[in-house]
Every structure is written in C-alpha cells, then in structure tokens.
Amino acid sequence: MTAPAPLIEFRNVSRVYGRGEAEVRALDGVDLTIAEGEFVAIMGPSGSGKSTAMNIIGCLDRPTGGEYLFKNTPVQSLSNDALALLRRHYLGFVFQGFNLLPRTSALENVELPLIYKGVPAAERAARAQEALAKVGLSGRGAHHPSELSGGQQQRVAIARALAGNPAVILADEPTGNLDSHRSEEILILLQDLNAREGITIVMVTHEPDIAAYARRLVIFTDGRITRDEPVAWNQAAAAEAPI
C-alpha cells in the first residue's frame, strides 16, 4: 500500500500576534503533515497554540511565517475570497457550542453550506436529508435547535459539516458541552465517518479519554509540537461499532 497523499502540510509554520514587546508567538516553527483519511486528535494546555493551529488548518487564519499547503496549494498567499472557497468546498466545521442558527430548522441549518455552493433547492433538500440520515436524525429536519437535546444539536452540526462533502472535518472540542454518554455517541459517529466515508478528521480536545478515540495524537506545548504518536489504545474501533 502506497502512502496516502498529504492533505495538510505545515512547513515551519509560525503565527505571531502583536509586535515588539507585546509579541506573542502562538505557533513557533511547527512541522506537521496529515494525510487523507487520518483521524488526528490535537491536545495541549490552553495557550499551547492548538486553537491557532486549528484556525490555520481551517483556513480561517493565515500563518505569519512558514508555509501551509492544503492539497499542495500554499494557503498563506491566498485572498480572503479564495480562503472562503477552500472552506466551502473542502472543509467542514464542528464547534464546541454547536453554533447552529437559532430559530432555523435543522434541515435549513444543514442546507446552509449547500446554499453557498449554489446547489438548486430540490437537490439541496435531498442532500440535507441524506446528511441528517447519516447522523441518525432522519425525521427531525423540521425541529428547531431549541427543540433538540445537546447531543442531537451536535449531530445536526456534524450533518451540516457533512452536507458539503468535505475532505476534512475540523472538530473543536466537539464534546465539550456534552455528558459522557452523549460524548461517546458523537465520537463513535466521527469514527464511523472516518472509517466508512474516508473523511479526514482533525479534533481538538483537552481530555485524554476523548483523544483516545482518534488514531493519532499530536500534543502542543508553548507553540511547538512536543509529541506526535499513534494512539495505542484506540477505544472503540469504528468498524466494529454498530450504529
């Protein structure tokens, strides 16, 4: 088996906020390569640079030094509109606070990225339904976020990320607002998407037992990667987990 193509490639990336005395080096010369189909957990104490790294991976921010290649494209030189296009076509976001639009039905929330892709209305609804079905929420499309439990809301958010057919799902503390039972459901769902759909997943967390659902663990300390290793005790292999 040949090595899978690199999807995300950091070459000596740094991200500096402020200037002079007030300068903060959030990332300080980071090299990181994530290949297609990986499930990577990023851990580290607060202020270690893991969120900054996520923002750069997610094309929400640009490095101030070094190179970030996404699908072999150097991102740091792209315009804001080009970054928006990258996000629209290749990236899906899952946030700790779910970040669904309030007073908007689950189906319409899931349709959102398809609207920006210019998918016609009928196809949009069909694809959104399909995405909801993948996260086990078929039939809940008409519900508003306030009528759904936290776990269900996070599933809607995952369905929204899925609807655009992304290459990567970036999950920032996806279980931070959920109890352990709901957390496990969400993590198994992510594992399943990784295994069955081949979607690359990058997840930030600060809990080791959450990180244990991934296959690779990257630990940030003070803006540098201090550990990068495969996860030895993968909790529940998605292939075996019936959903």
Binding site: G58, R88, H89, Y116, G164
Partner: peptide
Amino acid sequence: TREIGIRLAIGASSRQ
C-alpha cells in the same frame, strides 16, 4: 455577529 461567523466559516464569501 455569531451568525455571520458561522456563515463565513461554512464558506460564505464576504460578498455573499
């Protein structure tokens, strides 16, 4: 503001 952030993250261009 938050809604705008969500839309931008999801892939809306600033023009949209």
